[in-house]
Amino acid sequence: MRRLGDLEAEIMDRFWTWNRPATVREVVDDINRARTVAYTTVMTVTNILYNKGWLLRGKQGRAWLYSPVRSREAYAAALMEDGLGESRDRSAALVHFVENMSEDEVAALREALRSVGRQAKV
């Protein structure tokens, strides 16, 4: 069974790929090539995305044109920086693989790798 989040992702995927304002009809037609989905369902979920702040919309003639607020890359960078603990609120929410380091600390790491005779790509 598909969840609401899956359809949200499918819709956002189209807007990010097209990289231009589009109508709900265009999105529905594109999704319908792979599987059938009702126009009203897509419209409802698109509205949810608009209300959540993922999409902007403007009226052209009688139709609403939607476009993403930010590019996929911009969102990804913000999420990554949040996830890697570079944002202020460093709670126990996320666990990341390595901490941020200074250049001296990285040099010490390199030294440690070298001292045991392993090769690091620098």
């Binding site: 390595v98 901490e99 941020n100 200074s102 600390e105 790491l109 390199r110 790798l113 090769q119 620098v122």
Partner: peptide
């Protein structure tokens, strides 16, 4: 160990201000 190094080294420029890197060492 090399993965740790690769990831730590790659992030240095933007994270240079942060403390706590000694734990990776």
């Amino acid at each position: 160990a090399t993965a740790m190094y690769e990831m730590a080294a790659a992030r240095t420029p933007r994270g240079a201000f942060a403390a706590g890197g000694h734990t990776v060492l």
